[in-house]
Design a protein around this nucleic acid. Structure first.
Lengths: 377, 377
DNA sequence: GACACTAAGTTCAGAAACTAAACAAATCAA
DNA sequence: TTGATTTGTTTAGTTTCTGAACTTAGTGTC
């Protein structure tokens, strides 16, 4: 295990990117002497390496960065069948990829992982020695130790100690996490939120997920439920939701809800793309659906801004569309429902991501535990 | 200034109450030897003292606690005229009280404080020597250094470096904070939220304020705006608000709004008490108003729970009432609008507080900076 | 090209903070 | 009275960090 200073250094580099020893020393509140020693140790461990030399006045500075091949992590997504499985390096790059069948039995999952691991690692023999962790992303609630699945409707689980089961069978340090929270961690470590201390990620998909980073750390909430915006009441007295109440954001603005509303209106749209096209051609039903959905998502995001004042909101989506009517209405609804003083002050970025997003997020959970240690909420 | 270990010790005692050296050592992850030394230093500084001896098996343990007279803080509220001014000991008890005229000129405020200080301290000569900080609570936005007032509608300010002005004229370490955030800090340090890491305080008054503690720390938000639930849209398309948009929580559920709605309905109610009495006698207008307001506040709190999953919500009020129709409807609305799985999982406490609440909160801001240091958001 | 100037990074002695282990102290239980 | 038990202190040694001097590798100027 690394010392706390070493972890802190990795975290700072992870957040601010490649930096010189002098800069790092200053930003960690340490002397140059202490920095020198800590960097030396991490370089000889193969975790850090010297990259560019930057010329200014005086002796040039040498930037230190995480060594891409200094540590490897495995990430598995239990959101799809077959379940994607990736091998990620220290920069979040995917260096190998496989899939394994999905099961609902935790022991079977652990066995399948143990079988698949050697094949995943086969091409990268160095990775096997530097494999420092395994992460699993799933739909459901996870406890604060990132070890037990408290509840998962999708998998039909209740209090399943999945991490320990996998750890025992595979021999690798394992952590599990909720899907949206895993994506947020991945954006914090490797994505566009690296240098932002407070932000929220909204994952727009068949369901709507959300997770918060606060003070540079993932905030899980007291029952692991922080960020569950899908079931906030956005249309009081609206349509019934599978959760048991009415008017949840999920019933109006999720991709699944949008598709179902389109079907109910007799539209033959297979994708959001089709629906946007219909709307742009003037189809009233399509326009109505997209308007209602965009408005609902915008209102929820406005609440998020009013309640938490994040530095950024990042919306990730695989097959959504934010450049049409839906996105426009959503942005307008946000601006119309935050304090006028704050309108336009919170950047809202949308990002199209590939299907690896969940497995990549899972891997970043393992990397996060290696880099920073467990989250203390 | 105290070392980080000393600060950590004070913080732990502040959170868990009086404890023995051995227990403290364990909970801070230090050896008994280190603990012994740190405690010795703080006792000789007069900040800690030995209280009870607890007998079990083996040598009895001696509990350490903050010395009530080990440090004193001044708190001033700029929310009322005259402005209340209190002297608080290390346990949050108010040991002296004065008032000073309110001004909108920062320099005048600093002069008034400097003049009033000796009189406040006159009766407690020991306090003058152990006065470690001064806090100011105001309505408006404050920067993350708790030094500058970014904006205050009530005071008509824009970027006023109030803390430094007061510090220069009075010679005392000064910090300013938003009113609701100051109350939250006071509840965390001295009130009913001492041992809760994640909670939100809602202050119900003429306006509605709110502040979050996350991970044991005050979360200020990226622009200092975290917790501004008063202006979240709770009735889309509802009544215009002074902020410029429509349907804000503030227009429906604040004490001021409730009184105004009562007046508009021709009711001669002077207080919430009167209105609740009217409602209990069957007055339809009173019932309608309280229902609407309770429902709105409940929905906002439900959103808060869905978004942030806090461990407690504490509603403070000076002249509100939560034991009648308003409170009942509010609680019902909360339960009806959170995920059924979470219903009843988040304790909602209401607490009637005295008029000292803001000045006490201001003093606790100073105590917080002494105990824990600046908040790093 | 020689020289001063600048800033990065290293070295080393010493300070500060912590640990481990032995020990002294204070009580209970038999 | 004796042993068990647990708290808190002492002491010696380790780890981690700082301060100051120093080396290194450049740039700018004459």
């Amino acid at each position: 295990m690394l010392t706390s200073s070493q972890q802190q250094l990795l975290r700072v580099i992870g957040q601010s990117g490649p930096s010189s020893r002098t800069v790092l020393a200053a930003s960690m509140g340490l002397s140059k002497a202490a920095m020198s020693g800590i960097a030396r140790d991490l370089i000889s461990l193969g975790v850090l390496h010297e990259t560019e030399t930057v010329h200014g006045q005086g002796r040039p500075s040498i930037l230190l960065d995480l060594h891409p091949e200094g540590a490897f992590f495995v990430g598995i997504s239990l959101l799809e069948d077959p379940a994607p499985m990736v091998l990620s390096d220290f920069n979040g790059n995917i260096v190998a990829r496989r899939a394994m069948p999905l099961s609902r039995d935790p022991d079977v999952i652990a066995d399948l992982i143990s079988e698949a691991l050697p094949k995943l690692l086969a091409r990268r023999k160095d990775a096997a020695q530097k494999l420092y962790g395994l992460g699993v992303a799933l739909s459901g609630f996870v406890d604060e130790k990132q070890a037990n699945c408290v509840q998962s409707t999708l998998l039909g689980w209740q209090d399943v100690p999945l991490a320990n089961i996998i750890r025992r069978k595979s021999g690798i340090d394992t952590f599990i996490e909720n899907d949206a929270k895993a994506v947020a961690v991945s954006e914090k470590l490797f994505g566009s939120a690296r240098d932002i201390r407070n932000f929220s990620v909204v994952s727009f998909d068949d369901g709507i997920g959300c997770a918060h980073f606060i003070g540079g750390q993932l905030y899980r909430g007291n029952h692991g439920g922080a960020g569950e915006i899908a079931h906030c009441t956005i249309e009081p007295g609206g349509s019934p939701c599978r959760c048991g109440k009415r008017g949840c954001l999920d019933t109006v603005a999720s991709l699944k809800a949008i598709k179902e509303m389109a079907k109910a209106e007799g539209l033959s749209c297979r994708s959001m793309n089709d629906l946007e096209t219909e709307a742009s051609l003037g189809n009233a039903a399509a326009i109505r659906i997209l308007h209602r959905a965009g408005n609902a998502l915008g209102l929820a995001i406005a609440h998020l801004i009013q309640f938490n004042d994040p530095g950024m909101i990042l919306i990730t989506h695989v097959e959504g569309r934010f450049d049409g009517l839906f996105g426009t209405v959503m942005r307008q609804a946000v601006e119309a429902n935050v304090l006028p003083r704050y309108a336009g002050q919170t950047p809202i970025r949308t990002r199209r991501v590939d299907g690896d997003i969940w497995a990549r997020g899972a891997a970043s959970i393992a990397a996060h535990n290696f880099l920073i240690g467990p989250t203390p909420n």
